[in-house]
């Protein structure tokens, strides 16, 4: 149709110039398109109001020794347990060689009395039992996940079952003796 125009006196040099322009235009367009995709994608990330709720402060004063409470943090349960001397002793006595995910109890707590961890099984995200007095606590006296039978000890470390890692310890700070901030 317009062959005469399209191909008229196209020397090699001119065609390479045209190729360059063509590729540069294409690359520029693609770059702008990708740049525009970022706001689209980023809008699905947590919004400012969601991030603003990403830390909670918990009053620990009502919790007696041997009691546990569960608080919600970032939509997930956080287990807070005031451990007994016996439980602390048990957790410390374990040899690291016996652990699938070796970690000393001292590395998991800031104050030995208070064990704070995310109550989500590291296998497939179920919530382990063991917070309430009547709950099964597994073979190691800590927590037991009913979904696929993972056993956690009194430091929340995985001891038996399919879970690959210990219950995660969230970043937390003791603001004073009775208040802890999680997150």
């Amino acid at each position: 149709m317009a062959d005469e125009i399209q191909t008229s006196d196209t020397s090699d040099e001119e065609s390479s110039r045209r190729d360059f322009l063509y590729l540069a235009t294409l690359a520029g367009g693609a770059g702008l398109g990708l740049a525009f995709m970022w706001p689209i994608i980023d809008s699905m990330n947590p919004a400012a109001d969601v991030l603003a709720l990403s830390s909670v402060e918990v009053d620990l004063s009502p919790i007696e020794e041997g009691q546990s409470i569960t608080v919600r943090w970032r939509g997930k349960p956080v287990f807070i347990r005031r451990r007994t001397a016996e439980e602390i002793e048990q957790a410390r006595a374990v040899s690291l060689a016996d652990l699938p995910d070796p970690q000393a109890d001292a590395d998991r707590v800031q104050r030995p009395e208070w064990l704070i961890m995310v109550g989500v099984c590291t296998h497939l995200g179920c919530i382990p039992l063991g917070q309430k007095t009547g709950d099964p606590k597994g073979e190691f006296g800590g927590w037991f996940c009913p979904c696929h039978g993972s056993h956690y000890d009194t430091s929340g470390r995985i001891r038996k079952g399919p879970a690959p890692a210990n219950l995660a310890v969230p970043q937390h700070t003791f603001l004073d003796d009775n208040i802890v901030r999680i997150g």
Binding site: P39, D42, S43, M44, N45, A47, D49
Partner: peptide
Amino acid sequence: MQYTPHVDYAFESVERIMRDVNYGWLL
């Protein structure tokens, strides 16, 4: 994905898009 179609929340959810959602103002 960010809007709530309810008379009690619709207006606030649009304001949330403007203030809190990443690039919500742009969208």
